[in-house]
Write a protein that binds this DNA or RNA. Structure first.
Length: 351
DNA sequence: AGCATCTCCTGCGATAGAGT
DNA sequence: ACTCTATCGCAGGAGATGCT
């Protein structure tokens, strides 16, 4: 029996499974101040509803040969606020991974810890809201051929596999939640396909604002500037507003940001029908600086999009070999590698 | 914890201004 | 005068927030 903090973590070793599948059956989230992390696939696609009304529409997005289809349960699509639960779990698990601790798909946490970490009001309804959020996360099903981690698959799954709440009434109000993450999310964590997001993200109260930040964080990253057309941004946001309405909402957010400078990491501006995100230079450096020594974890995700169907580790080896042969020392290894994958895919198509 | 109030996305319609 | 487009206003509804 080992401990995480002062809490024991039960490890059930299954002798029938090889070592790499040996996982503790429960991970207890008690890492104080874990940096917020979000999975990249979820930031790329509008998986979460930005509406406060229950959203019952099925969405489908296609990008080349990849598609993702998101269908709500009768409770409606999971919202960007529900996502805070996933962000909280991912942050905890990544922090544990960085500490070389073992992690598991099933995590448990105290509602009060979650509320503090995500800056939610500690009112009495918080427990009920968390329960509703878990229900929507559980009910929202995703069908996709986009893979996370090394898994390549067509699959249907919920955003979380299962969830249960545990009330401990001995000292009154201690309430605990146990969540089993879906493979989709767990693979992303293990492959470290996650991005550090600003703590100020939780201060963003408008759903659209949150979605804008995610998109900027994913696409602009540490670059000084990133531009996107309003219509394309609308699609990426998953907004149901008309184009004109969407422009108004974006204008409002930008005006707010100009006035209060509350938008984290980027300074958004509207130039005609183009939204420009300029970096404030505050984007956190990845905790895992270069995955397996050299490449930024973001590179693997982008490389998979650039060369769908190909084994990225194999491509990485090819790329390194080619750089060695040509005596190339890329100034920007990440960009160079993605470019390499792009031209690989253009020349050879799908494997 | 419970309740009241606030906030905000959406859908719809009204209004204003520019172009034909 | 008519059409088109951009902007503004408002109500509905549900979640977020704040107060006690």
């Amino acid at each position: 029996m080992t401990t995480v903090g002062d809490k024991p973590v039960k490890r059930l070793a299954n002798p029938l499974l090889p070592d790499r599948f040996q996982q503790p059956d429960l991970f207890i989230c008690d890492i104080f101040d874990a940096a917020p992390k979000s999975d990249m696939a979820g930031m790329e696609h509008p998986v979460f509803s930005i509406s406060k009304k229950p959203d019952h529409q099925t969405r489908r997005y296609e990008n080349g040969n990849n598609y993702i289809e998101i269908s709500p349960s009768t409770k409606g699509l999971a919202t960007v606020f529900d996502r805070d639960i996933l962000i909280f779990c991912i942050s905890q698990l990544i922090a544990a991974l960085n500490d070389k601790k073992e992690i598991s798909k099933t995590v448990s946490f105290k509602v009060s810890d979650y509320i503090v970490a995500t800056g939610k009001p500690a009112g009495g309804s918080a427990y009920g809201r968390a329960e509703d959020a878990l229900e929507r996360l559980r009910g929202t099903s995703i069908k996709t051929n986009i893979h996370t981690g090394e898994e390549r698959q067509w699959q249907v799954f919920g955003l979380v596999e299962s969830a249960k709440t545990i009330r401990r009434d001995n000292d009154g109000v201690l309430q605990e939640v146990q969540v089993t993450l879906s493979d989709w999310v767990f693979n992303a964590i293990q492959a470290k396909e996650v991005l550090t997001i600003s703590r100020d993200y939780f201060r963003l109260k408008k759903p659209l604002e949150r979605r804008m930040y995610e998109i900027a964080r994913k696409h602009c990253g540490k670059s000084s500037e990133w531009r996107i057309g309003l219509e394309k941004l609308r699609l990426k946001c998953g907004s149901h507003s008309s184009a004109k309405e969407f422009k108004r909402l974006i204008s409002n957010i930008i005006a707010d940001s100009d006035q209060h400078d509350h938008f984290p990491d980027y300074d958004p501006a509207l130039e005609g029908n183009i939204v420009v995100f300029r970096s404030k230079g505050t984007v956190p450096m990845p905790v895992v600086e270069m995955y397996e020594g050299r490449l930024d974890p973001e590179a693997y995700h982008d490389a998979r999009t650039a060369a769908p169907g190909w084994d990225i580790r194999m491509l990485e080896q090819e790329w390194r070999a080619w750089c060695g042969k040509e005596e190339i020392e890329p100034k920007h290894p990440t960009r160079h590698f993605i470019k390499f994958c792009q031209s690989w895919f253009e020349k050879r198509g799908r494997p």
